[in-house]
Every structure is written in C-alpha cells, then in structure tokens.
Amino acid sequence: MASGLVALLDDVAGIAKIAAASLDDVAGAAGKAGAKAAGVVVDDTAVTPGYAMGFTPDRELPIVMKIAIGSLRNKMLFLLPGALLLSAFAPWGITPLLMLGGSYLCFEAAEKIIEAFSGHDEVDEPEELALSAKELEKQKVDGAIRTDFILSGEIMAISLATVADKPLAVQAGALVLVGVAITIGVYGVVGLIVKMDDIGLHMAKARTAGGRALGRLMVRAMPVVMDWLTTIGTAAMLWVGGGIIVHGLEHFGLTPIPHWAEAFSHWAGQVPGVGAITGWTAMALASAAVGMVVGGVIAGVLHLLPKKKAKAH
C-alpha cells in the first residue's frame, strides 16, 4: 500500500514537472510574442482614448470598460480560434495575412497624414449630432471595437508568427496570455489617460500649493498629450505596418527593399557608443518610409475610385 502511494506521488510529481515545463514554454513564448507585437500595442493605446473623450466624466470609464470587454471578446472568441486553425491547416497564410494587415495600418496612417496636411480633419456629421447621448455612446463603442478588431488581429497574427514553431497547445497558451495581458495593459493605460484631466481637477483643489500647481499642469497638459498620442499612434502604424511589409517581402524572396533597409540600418549603426540605438532608429525610419509609400498608394487609389465612378455615371 505504501509503495503504491509512493509511486502515485512520484507520478503526480512527474506530471507537475511536465506541467511546470509547459507553463515555462508558454510564458517564454508569450513574452517573445508580446515583445514582437509592441508596436501595434502602442498604436492601440494611442488610438483608443479618442473614443472615450467628449462624454461626461461619469461615462468615460464605463465606455473604456465596454471597449475592453469587446476587445477581449474579439481576441478570445474570434481571433484566437482563427489563428490556431490557420496555424494547424494553412501556416503558409500567416505571412500574407500579416502583410495585408500591415498594409491596412499603413493606409490608416497615410489617411491621417493626408487629412492633417489638407486641412480636412474629421468633424461631427449631422447624423451624429442628432443622436442621443446613449446612441452616440453605443456608436463610439462599436466603432472602437471594430478598430480594435483590426489591431487585435495584427497583435494575434504577429504573436502567432513568433510561436509558429511551437506545439499547438503552447501556441494556444501563449496567445491567451498575450491577449489577456495586452488587453489589461492597454485599457488600464487608456483608463488612466481619459481620467487624467479629472485627476488634475481634483488635485487643483488640494490643500498644498504644490498639489494645486501639479493639478493645474495636468489639466493644461491633456490637449497636448492627446495631440502627441495621435502623432505617436500614426508613427507607430507606419513603422509597424511598413516593418511587417519589409519582413514579408524578405520572406518571399523579394529582397531589394529589405536589403536597402538593412543596409541603411547597418550604416546608421556604425556610430560609436550609440550604434544600437541609431541602427534601430534607422530601421524604423526605413520601415516607416516603406509604410508611407504603400499607404499613400492605397489611399490614392481609393480616393480616385469614387471620382472614376462619378465620371462613368
């Protein structure tokens, strides 16, 4: 009886070791995958606060929570199963899918830049102005969740490409960890951003002069922070989208552009002491340049199509 119990305990210990090793594999894979997706995460964090701005303070955090739940639903119910099916039955489709998503990011960034230089910034449509607060909130949340679906799709695809050589169970675990951790991280930061002005207003009533000064500074800084977030989000879209396209071209043997980007990065990386930083910056700039060209071409074609249809009619 005792020997049987000892054998059982040995088996349990062995299973525990295997489980621990598997968890280590999952955690390691998730860490690498999350690092690879960092650029899209920056973009997601920069884009989302705009959807919660303009509402009464008591609705800002509930709106962020609704978007976060929608984001998690996107990842867990739709994107995760789709990614695992793709990995199991059509792994060759991962790179083209990444390039398609990267092209969309480049297009979105190019559209924002074109609007900024042309002076045609987005304004509230008459139909939007006629909506009730509840209807407008629903429209904004739905729009944010749709945008998040694209960005989350890129995050999951980049993560999948990073762990594609792992067993399917490790892939699934890594994608779940990445999806949950990124959702919590992104929307935690977004919640803090949208409440910064309220925190500043509260601090402006503090008893100490330093607290009041810091509170007023936070309130005044919010418009600048939002402008910077828009700029950072656009830059991240170009850098990430262009980088995905460059790596995709290299994957398919279309090497002139990837070789040019690598040569530029290598040349910039020769600066003594800061070569790693200048080399990385050069690669990011080269990727952004590729992204701007791709996004500009797509935007130009899409803007020309309505004009051609109008002329045909």
Rank of each mutant, 00 (worst) to 15 (best):
L8S: 15
L305W: 14
T230G: 09
G4R: 10
L238T: 07
I244T: 05
L160D: 09
R212L: 06
M1C: 02
W239E: 14
G242Y: 07
L168P: 09
K112H: 09
A288D: 06
T234V: 15
L77R: 01
D198R: 01
L201K: 15
A33P: 06
A130Y: 04
S71L: 08
L8C: 09
A16L: 12
L79E: 11
G279N: 08
V123N: 01
I15V: 09
T208N: 12
T48E: 07
A68I: 12
Y104I: 14
L84N: 01
T234S: 10
L77T: 06
F252V: 03
A90P: 11
K195I: 06
G101I: 06
T208V: 07
G291T: 09
P96L: 11
A299K: 05
Y104T: 07
L61Y: 07
G253P: 02
A20Y: 11
L305E: 11
M203W: 07
A164V: 14
G215L: 02
T95H: 00
W260L: 15
C106Q: 06
I277G: 05
D198W: 02
D25P: 00
A288M: 11
M292N: 06
H202Y: 13
M222E: 08
A7L: 09
A83H: 04
E122N: 06
A35G: 13
A284K: 12
K112Q: 12
R212P: 12
D148L: 01
H259P: 09
I69P: 10
A109F: 06
D121L: 08
I18K: 09
D142A: 14
V47A: 11
W239I: 15
A116C: 05
A164N: 13
A83K: 02
M222A: 05
A286F: 05
A268W: 12
G173K: 02
I18L: 13
G275R: 05
R207F: 11
H313V: 04
G185W: 02
K17H: 13
E154Y: 03
G14C: 05
R212D: 08
T255R: 04
T162V: 09
M226C: 02
L86D: 02
A157V: 14
V294E: 06
G211I: 10
V224I: 03
A263R: 10
G54Q: 01
G50P: 10
K75I: 07
A284I: 10
A209H: 10
D142P: 00
P81R: 01
K75D: 03
L151E: 03
T147A: 14
G279D: 08
V6K: 09
H202F: 14
T278F: 10
E135C: 01
G50C: 08
I114P: 00
A35Y: 14
A37R: 07
L77G: 03
G243N: 02
G28Q: 04
M76A: 14
P91E: 03
L100H: 02
A7W: 05
G191M: 11
M1D: 08
E115W: 00
D11P: 00
G4H: 15
R73F: 15
A144K: 01
M292E: 08
A284S: 14
H251V: 00
V178D: 11
F78H: 00
W239D: 13
R220Y: 01
D121I: 03
K309F: 13
H313G: 13
G173R: 00
A204R: 08
T234W: 07
A30V: 06
A144Q: 08
K195Q: 15
P272R: 03
G243P: 04
Q171Y: 06
T255A: 04
E125V: 05
F252Q: 01
I18Q: 09
T95G: 01
L5I: 14
